[in-house]
């Protein structure tokens, strides 16, 4: 059962929640988009729609060169591993392009930080950051990725890299790939019957007799 159908069933009140939960378990959880962009859809007020459309009509913020640098950086921060893909696979850079327009206060730190990085690269290797090899790139990154041990003179680079790491992580772990990676299992209709037994056991906890007797519990047979 897809999500919209399941909500409709709940609304009508004919399907028991147990049936619904089973139905949701057994189907592909990939859900169809309700509209091309929900952010001009039914749940937005007119002022929001207008602001969103205005923002989307703005010219692209990052230059081509800046965007190339961002894609290198985001994949240094979140590379592909055995569990999930990379930040660029999750199109984190598209999120970054949006969010600097939505939160203009991020524009100067991002633009200035990218230029700081290029100037470091130029001083050390006489080339822009994207044009040096991976080993050279990491030699700069290692100087700005660890705030506690960064050398004097690297502070601005540290601040930029921390911001870039924050935005990359937020962009990645709020993507479909990232949510799956971190293992968030909610956002689906279900019935809460309490903490699973093996977890309770692991932490040496249990429900009181009163909780077991009085709290809501749901039979999986509906």
């Amino acid at each position: 059962m897809d999500r919209r159908k399941s909500i409709k069933a709940l609304l009508i009140g004919t399907a028991s929640t147990a049936l619904l939960v089973d139905a949701c378990k057994n189907t592909n959880t990939k859900l169809p988009e309700e509209t091309a962009s929900p952010f001009v859809g039914a749940d937005r007020m007119k002022e929001e729609k207008a602001a969103y459309e205005k923002l989307m009509a703005e010219p692209i913020f990052f230059t081509e060169h800046e965007m190339k640098t961002i894609i290198v950086l985001e994949d240094i921060i979140i590379p592909k591993d055995a569990i999930s893909g990379s930040a660029s696979d999750a199109k984190v850079h598209d999120f970054l392009e949006f969010i600097v327009k939505d939160k203009p206060e991020l524009q100067v730190p991002m633009r200035g930080g990218l230029r700081w990085l290029d100037m470091q690269s130029l001083q050390r290797f006489e080339k822009a950051f994207v044009d040096i090899d991976a080993k050279q790139q990491l030699s700069i990154i290692d100087d700005i990725a660890y705030p506690a041990k960064a050398k004097v003179g690297m502070e601005q680079g540290v601040a930029f890299f921390s911001l870039m790491r924050n935005l990359t992580a937020t962009g990645f772990y709020t993507s479909e790939m990232g949510v799956k990676d971190v293992g968030y299992m909610g956002n689906v209709p279900n019935q809460w019957n309490g903490v699973p037994d093996d977890v309770l056991k692991k932490y040496g906890l249990s429900y009181s007799e009163r909780e077991l007797k009085e709290c809501a519990s749901y039979s999986t047979n509906g």
Partner: peptide, 11 residues
Amino acid sequence: QPAYGFGWAIE
């Protein structure tokens, strides 16, 4: 559910 701000200040 992860949302904007997730992973902030991991350092």
